[in-house]
Design a protein around this nucleic acid. Structure first.
Length: 192
DNA sequence: ACCAGGATTCCCT
DNA sequence: GGGAATCCTGGTG
């Protein structure tokens, strides 16, 4: 089931907050892995200097970011994969980056893929991709797809939502400091 | 064809 | 806290 708040009119900032506590699931031939989303960042499109769609930039690599709400925009950086959920209307270029997970199902497999244990399994955007076993085949695919998907039917409850500046984007003027990062206050699996 | 530049991670001091 | 690893994309000549 898709919750009411998961629609194209929901502001990206609001979507980023609502995704906290949802479950990200990957079904593969190795088994099912999943984790609770505990940290996200909003990227606001044309005006946002840190967004890949800043100033309406369009390249083949960005196509999924312009597809509108409900698909994954995967981005490769230095051999790592970063996961985003596209928001808004087609052509808008906005999305939410998933920065950290608390492992839920398939913890052993996730630890094995990472070669690490504890918080090092998924306390970072590329770490969680590796832990889940994500590859670029999910680029532009629906978040309700059979492989990689968001499960809205269960939710991690938490006491307090934290807000702060996004990570890893220096020299972007006011956009470096805007409070567009959301997280579960005090959660052990937060990135950085 | 070449080169600079990352929405990162890891390891070292 | 700092720097190297590493690799793909896109802009430029």
């Amino acid at each position: 089931m898709i919750p009411d708040w998961f629609n194209r009119d929901t502001p990206t900032t609001e979507l980023a907050q609502n995704l906290i506590g949802c479950l990200l699931v990957h079904e593969s031939d190795e088994g099912r892995c999943s984790g609770w989303i505990v940290e996200t960042e909003a990227y606001l499109g044309f005006e946002d200097q840190a967004s890949h769609s800043y100033q309406r930039k369009q390249t083949p690599r960005l196509s999924a970011l312009y597809q509108g709400l409900g698909v994954f925009y995967l981005y490769q950086m230095r051999g790592h994969i970063l996961i985003n959920v596209v928001s808004g209307y087609p052509g808008q270029g906005t999305g939410v980056m998933i920065r950290a997970l608390e492992p839920y199902q398939g913890r052993d497999l996730m630890a094995q893929r990472r070669g690490k244990s504890g918080i090092l399994i998924s306390n970072g955007p590329a770490k969680l991709s590796q832990a889940l076993g994500i590859n670029m085949s999910y680029y532009g695919q629906s978040v309700q797809g059979p492989g990689l998907r968001i499960d809205f039917s269960q939710r991690l409850s938490y006491a307090k939502l934290g807000v702060g500046p996004r990570i890893g984007i220096p020299n972007k003027g006011e956009w470096t400091h805007k409070p567009l990062r959301y997280y579960i206050e005090g959660h052990p699996y937060l990135s950085k």
